[in-house]
Write a protein that binds this DNA or RNA. Sequence first.
DNA 1: CCGCGCAAGTTGATCGTTCATACTGCCGAG
DNA 2: CTCGGCAGTATGAACGATCAACTTGCGCGG
Lengths: 354, 354
Amino acid sequence: MVARHAAVSRQTVSNAFNAPDRLRPETLQRVRAAIDELGYRPNQAARSLRSHSTRVIGCRLLPSNSGGVLDRLLHALCDAARASGYDVLTFSARDDDEEIEVYTDLLRRGAVDGFVLTNTHHLDTRPGWLLEHAARFVAFGRAWGVRRTAHSWVDVDGAKGTSEAVEHLARLGHNRIAFLGVPAGSGVGDDRYRGWERAAEQLSLPVKGLAQRAEDGIESGRTLTRRLLESARPPTGIICVSDSMAIGALRAIEDGGLSAGRDVSVVGFDDSPIAAVLRPGLSSVRQPIESVAHELIDVLLAELSERGRAPARQLLAPRLVVRESSGPAPGASRPPKARRPLPSHTLETKERKQ
Amino acid sequence: MVARHAAVSRQTVSNAFNAPDRLRPETLQRVRAAIDELGYRPNQAARSLRSHSTRVIGCRLLPSNSGGVLDRLLHALCDAARASGYDVLTFSARDDDEEIEVYTDLLRRGAVDGFVLTNTHHLDTRPGWLLEHAARFVAFGRAWGVRRTAHSWVDVDGAKGTSEAVEHLARLGHNRIAFLGVPAGSGVGDDRYRGWERAAEQLSLPVKGLAQRAEDGIESGRTLTRRLLESARPPTGIICVSDSMAIGALRAIEDGGLSAGRDVSVVGFDDSPIAAVLRPGLSSVRQPIESVAHELIDVLLAELSERGRAPARQLLAPRLVVRESSGPAPGASRPPKARRPLPSHTLETKERKQ
DNA sequence: CCGCGCAAGTTGATCGTTCATACTGCCGAG
DNA sequence: CTCGGCAGTATGAACGATCAACTTGCGCGG
């Protein structure tokens, strides 16, 4: 400890970092001056060894198909973590089992204090494993398919997102609004489906035959949309569980010689970078990823500091980003409720940070 | 050290990890059995403290605008690092100065052994700073604008990529091939420009007035392409420094009532996920990011193990991914050299891993 | 028969912190 | 005047591995 440059003991320097309120202001200032002068930073390894906390958080990289959401999350996580004096260690894994192997390794080696779980899904084995092994973690995504969640999570209210999408289209005069979803059983998909269903029922819009489901993907979206458009009473608005589905929907609309945003409106989910680049620009529900990251870190740090605290849950609201793929319903020259400019949704100008 | 379960000393267990060749095979096996049985892993903090190596590599997250390249790189880096017993610690930074601040912090705290530099650019201050502070690192990207590079790097031969794009279009019968670039001075942009120029001259194709430059972006690509198409002798092929530029080019072609891939062919650079999703699909030069990541890790580990070794340089070749945006030149019913199926370029089927 | 050298494994010290506890004044109550 | 209590600081030990130096056993040449 070279910082006896300040004529104090090691421990006092240590306290200057870890418990500054225990020092007399005068001493603190002297120690801080010495620290700055010498450019001293406590060695991480020694600190971890003694205190059994590494100040590192582990996070699996998602497969890149998540449409830029992971990218934003990781950025925001790193920022939020660093602001609290933590670092983020990333790893990739082909599947959940491999992820658990990495957990085992990192925990046994004492390389991380806790984890941020991403991409939680129905019957996810990871939370149970982590609880069993007394690891600290927080999930981005609720514990789908589990009766009582015993762990902390932060999530985005997908139902609210699709509800708002329905309301948005309804305000534009649409009265047959379809939903392109994924097969029942996926927590996220069911959540978004319910938002559509709930809003449609509240607005007395039809739902029968208007919900189509298939595996996520552009081709799925295209096929399902073609089917919808060829039906006896085709919808004029389509809300999609993902942007990929929505891209497929846009294609099917073009395929049918129709114009997206004029003849049929489409809303996607996740506001992936592609959404802003497509023509027409894809209206999409954007998750407040930056806030999610902050909450994740907050919750995880609470989890780390207090053993055995009650699990925290945070549900954040997404926001609809309106682009050209959603427009007034055909024939509705004066849409019922949209005489005033739309209040709750913002028109996007260029790139808008959350 | 609970692993005296094997009736040996601590140090022998340590050797089983760090120098297995020093143990008698028989002993080694006994120790390994005990390790497996107890699920023991050496504590990272203690190991780092004593050995002054953390087995962690720092890597800045790039701003997400890099069109998916960073995402792939990070995945591959994590995989390659883990395969060599290292972990990757990520951080974000708004600019190079902030990045250097993080370097300072991580190095002083002894939290990482070295860095992978991404997004190197003209007159980059980071390599100099790192060299000056005796930090180990390897750059993804050459040291542009510096006479003698004193550090290791791995890069992709951008000139080769654009050259191949020119050859590809030439084989399809195009004889006026333009280039959309960024203003001179950016190393990457100049490199890609030279590839176009070199190939065009070798094939005796005109270059005069066919190279247009502006800041990277969709709108730039659109403007430059409009200008080209309105010129006296418009090109039939356009090679772009980036996919964003190429997207702009596609739009300008549509704007002009032309068909991309039939009337005018377009080739982008980076093969961002958007390229496969656009209609027509965008032909694009794909960087071998996974190989880059492996090389980066190899070079960095060599750098870590041998102090003062000569800097390593690796230049890898990209590969053109052909999609619908590049087709036979209009009027060239029998393109000169393409009677046989194109040999060196593969037609993409769905998603192709590098 | 001695001693040298090498292979295989052991031991004490050490890395740079923080923990637990002990010390030192100083103040005020008894 | 003494002593308990407290705030502020100092001291010894410990965290769990690796390093460097030391032991032990064995084969082999002189």
